[in-house]
Amino acid sequence: MAYIIEGIKEAFALLLRGDSEIYQIILLSLLVSGIATLLATVVGLPLGIYTGIRKFPLKRLYGSVLFTAMGIPPVVIGLLVTIVLSRKGPLGTYELLFTPQAMVIAQFLLVLPIVTGILFGTAREKGKHAYELAKTLGANRIECLFLLIKELHSSVLLAIMTGFGRAISEVGAVMLVGGNIRGQTRVMTTFITMNNSMGAYEKSIAMALVLLSISLVINGLSHHITGGKSYVD
């Protein structure tokens, strides 16, 4: 028990000392997960809303596949991206493996089904009436999309928050495609895993506290935005 308390004390000391490595890792984590979430939102938001409101063959199957993909293990995504980006892989010539770009690609693939799935589910339930109204009042496709974003804004924000929360807290994908290289691809989760295996608990606890704070802020915002409801409601 004593070493846990000692670890927490040292963690605060480490954070207050302004250790540059710690802050560089936090910054890289926020950047990689932020860019991945932004890209996934740009693609997933119109895709989720459009497929949610439209009727098309095999829509139920599409929904099932999408909802399954929302829970895909990060390590599986990491493995797929590693295979594709490795030297012998189809995109090996770009030499992206073990770079922050590869981490963005992996997290983009992880977050995309989450953003798309949440908005698909909401648009399917609630978006049809708003879409029909906009259409019958003479709105074009872009105007319909903007109206739907406005009408479903709490779900849109929830999808983004959930996607970012998933990206920032995952370890499997970034470990495989980033390689946890000091000063280049080391992020909060891989830092915690590494220090834990080395027995450097104070560093692990310090970073865990930061990660926990970020998760709490994201959860708090999601809760506030949706008025305490989950997207299923």
């Binding site: 009436h129 109204l133 019958t136 003479g138 804004h153």
Partner: peptide, 23 residues
């Protein structure tokens, strides 16, 4: 130009004025 209004109309988020102003 053509518009349709159903028997159970959908109300947009916002006030009465914002709804009528939308088109």
């Amino acid at each position: 130009t053509c518009t349709y209004s159903g028997s159970n109309p959908y109300m947009l988020r916002g006030t009465v004025m914002e709804n009528i102003l939308y088109p």
